[in-house]
């Protein structure tokens, strides 16, 4: 199968929504308000932290917030100084700063970032472990969630079977993104 026909091509995977487990968006947003607009999204790799932040960005934008989403990763361990300076110069209570991959920052870097963004009405950071901000959400993944997500991309007549989902999920230690990429390879061979 050619890449543009593959249901697990990146652009389709990236369009998948965040599906809360054991909670819902109303509770999450209510929790954020109760925590004075500060919260951490905590969970292992590939469990939906980035997807959550993207969905949060859409929802906050709809509520009238000016949202800034910054991404850090192994290749980009600290935010661009000029970008942060520009963002921070215009922050107010209707601003939201979302930082993906906060674990990349040093302790000092994190303290500095929190200080610079103090005027923002909302600050949410994702991290692999708790402790940066009061935990707002713990992302978890299950074989059932993998099956739900895969079946959103697959044709109705070719759903992912529970057993297959279970095997893929455990082969990738619960990393949904990697499991979905394995499905890409399986479909590419068709």
């Amino acid at each position: 199968m050619k890449a543009h026909d593959n249901p697990f091509a990146s652009r389709y995977m990236d369009s998948l929504p965040y599906i809360p487990i054991g909670t819902d968006w109303e509770r999450i947003l209510g929790g954020l308000k109760n925590q004075s607009g500060r919260g951490a999204v905590v969970g292992p790799k590939g469990t939906g932290k980035t997807t959550f932040l993207e969905e949060l960005k859409r929802r906050l934008s709809r509520e009238g917030y000016t949202v800034h989403l910054l991404r850090l990763n192994q290749e980009r361990k600290r935010p661009d100084r000029e970008e942060v300076r520009q963002i921070c110069s215009g922050l107010d209570l209707q601003s939201a700063v979302l930082l993906d991959g906060a674990e990349q920052l040093s302790r000092l870097g994190w303290i500095s970032f929190v200080f610079k963004t103090r005027k923002a009405g909302i600050l949410v950071a994702s991290s692999h472990s708790p402790g940066l901000l009061p935990t707002l959400l713990k992302t978890t993944a299950t074989p059932e969630l993998l099956q739900i997500l895969a079946n959103r991309l697959l044709p109705e007549d070719s759903p992912l079977e529970p057993e297959h989902s279970f095997r893929l999920f455990h082969a990738r230690n619960g990393n949904l993104r990697l499991a979905l990429m394995d499905l890409y390879d399986i479909w590419a061979r068709r």
Binding site: N6, A9, S10, D185
Partner: peptide
């Protein structure tokens, strides 16, 4: 544009 596995 490119489309497929990984970064597009």
């Amino acid at each position: 544009y490119t489309m497929g596995k990984g970064t597009e």
